[in-house]
Amino acid sequence: MPVLDRVWKRWKGTATSIHGRFFVITRFALADAFASRTFLAFYVLCFLPSLIALLAVYLSHNTAILEQASAIQDWLIEIPEWIFHHLFGWQAMPAFLIAVVVAPSLIAADMGHNALAVVLSRPITRREYILGKLTVLLVLLSPLTWVPALALFGLQASLANGSWGVTNLRIAAAYLIGHWIWMLVISLLGLAVSATVRFATLARGAILAIFLVSAVAGGIINQLTRSSLGDLLHLPKAVTSVVMGLFGAPTPSDLPIMFNWATLIVAALLSLWVLNRRLRACEEIA
């Protein structure tokens, strides 16, 4: 005869806040991502460009070390300006690769065996579900992009003369806004593809293909029409133009910059539309 009898009992404690509930999705997805050692190693590698840039900026202001390394002194002194011109690309590319690796399995895994039906039977909405998944990518990409960029800006401002930070505030704003635009575009595209393509490898290919095909299609249209109309489809050029515009530099597209903004906004809205269509607790068969 059992000492204890198993009897079902309801839980009557206080529930956690409804507002932060989406973060449960984020937390579990992040834990899943970092469960892979290969991914962890790759993620650490992605910090290299930012770490090298931080080191270089520090060295360029450290005269004691520069005097010992006189041969490369001139080059090192020039470094901050050169770094701020190129760092965005160095940071954006690893961020893109991380999004390509992580995003495809984020939603596809939940859709594979109808897990969404029980996930969405919980007191969370579809919007919160998407927000939870989007936050996974934002949490992963932020330490690779705008966080080190602002840290670098802060370091340079503190090491350079007093007015450098104020006079170059636009650089900090451009890094912050530019990286957020980049993160949102690739994250939303990644999630939309994940909600559409079930197999992760295919989905990764699809994300790359979207950028490649949009670039090729844009180029062909430009050639055929002998205009810059194709740039409306050219996602990489739209991102670059918007970012260059934020820095106040010449843009690669001949179109007014608001058209490049429009391209990115349309891409984001399309991704949200796909997510809205695909993310259902159950199929609606009429």
Binding site: W11, G13, A15, T16, I18, R21, V24, I25, F28, D32, A109, D110, G112, H113, N114, A115, A117, V118, V119, S121, R122, P123, I124, C282
Partner: peptide, 27 residues
């Protein structure tokens, strides 16, 4: 809710799956 069809994430352990849904419910 217990749906009619399969409803799980194949790569998750049972305990992790149930815990995940418990947390989503407010535990």
């Amino acid at each position: 809710y217990m749906p009619e069809d399969d409803a799980h994430i194949a790569g998750m352990t049972a305990i992790r799956w149930v815990r995940f849904l418990g947390e989503l419910s407010g535990l």
